[in-house]
Design a protein around this nucleic acid. Structure first.
Lengths: 219, 219
DNA sequence: TGAATAATGTACGAACTGGTTCGTTATGCA
DNA sequence: TGCATAACGAACCAGTTCGTACATTATTCA
């Protein structure tokens, strides 16, 4: 997506460009059909290069999928990075953060599909990637600090840690995108309908704030 | 699982038994490897019958998967059926219903995987099944009645309908099972750890009740 | 300029996979 | 008892799929 990586090395013989193009196409193909369903020949065909290059750069279908995952995660980590919500009051900060997650999931359905696929495969590619098995904590750290502020000020009463709150927020956002097809087929409701977007967004925020501030009665 | 379907017709030549056995093995295989990843030969091998029988009874891999889905949904619908929570007060009833969903998802990880897989395939098998595209509303109806009671009594303040509340409850339960591998790989936390089970169960209940009863501030 | 090497394309093959053909055996019923 | 038919099995096939061997062209740097 950036205009040009290098000073445009000729036009043919551009390694970085070929590599990136393969990754783009592979992302779409894996998201479309799953790991086993994806066809290497199909990826090659939609590239302006050949299957040979895929193996030249990535070695195997498996490693290609891992590279796709790595890049996809890198993108979202970038987005999570530049949210400065710590100047807001805790309640507003958490709501803002939830909305950011909401927006991001909605904007990147392919990423959600890749994660679903990776879960089917027991996260073995993530486990095999050094890049991915570390660096995922910045988002968690932000939550942790907001949570601490909120507890100090007395606004938050619930007993959660940052990782579990992250799970709660993600679950709603993830479900909405990942389970859209079956939910629509079973209940006739499109969770991604444009007209209902604000409703779900508010629902998420109310849910999280309700949980954090609620007196959680009757148990 | 029932002792015998028919008066045990001989031992060989038992159509119902063969059919059921194929479905059992197919469920496990599809859940393990996804639709495309599942191997018909592998299913046949783990059965005491042959691949020929799979095509004899089900016609195609696709129809077999549909049959697997149909049976899996039938099982959970059965469980949802016999919950009588309408005599409880609305708050307790919703919490009970959420816990039931929680328990059920946890107890049937294969079902969750099948649904994930079906979502990757855009729910095309559900759409193609007459059985599945109807009958899924009993659970929704129960929620709707509880919701009405709660709103009448003033206990519930949130403006949701039954389908969306169902989505909220499901999202948390579903995520916990479906995303366990990636979540563990990225954050080192096992969402299904036995020791934390009660924590998550309470978290879900508090979340839903907090949402329904909370004054949802700051927006 | 002239290698050394990075990048690329073509054609191919071995293994696998969903699905079928052909034939056999048990079973219920007249 | 005998026959129609449901239930079953072994071998096979055509198409596909990941991956590679071999050949070629551009680029870089001494």
């Amino acid at each position: 997506m950036p205009p040009a990586e290098k000073p445009a090395a000729g036009r043919t013989r551009d390694a970085a460009r070929t590599r990136a193009e393969i990754l783009d196409v592979a992302t779409a193909e894996f998201a479309r059909a799953g790991f086993t369903g994806a066809r290497v020949d199909e990826i090659a065909a939609r590239t302006r290069t050949t299957k040979r290059m895929i193996y030249y750069y990535f070695g195997s279908k498996e490693q290609l999928f891992t590279a796709v995952l790595e890049r996809a995660y890198a993108v979202i980590r970038g987005a999570e990075q530049d949210l400065d919500v710590e100047h807001l009051d805790p309640v507003a900060a958490i709501r803002r953060l939830a909305e950011l997650t909401f927006d991001h999931h909605e904007a990147h359905p392919d990423f959600i599909r890749l994660v679903s696929i990776e879960n089917i495969h027991e996260a073995e590619h993530i486990a095999a990637s050094e890049k991915l098995s570390r660096l995922n904590w910045p988002a968690i750290d932000v939550i942790a600090r907001i949570l601490e502020n909120g507890r100090d000020s007395g606004a938050f009463t619930a007993d959660v840690d940052a990782v579990n709150l992250h799970a709660m927020i993600s679950s709603f956002c993830f479900f909405r995108v990942a389970n859209r097809p079956t939910f629509a087929a079973l209940f006739g409701r499109d969770l991604l309908a444009a007209g209902e977007r604000e409703r779900y967004r508010a629902m998420l925020g109310d849910m999280v704030i309700g949980y954090l501030t609620g007196g959680a009665s009757s148990r």
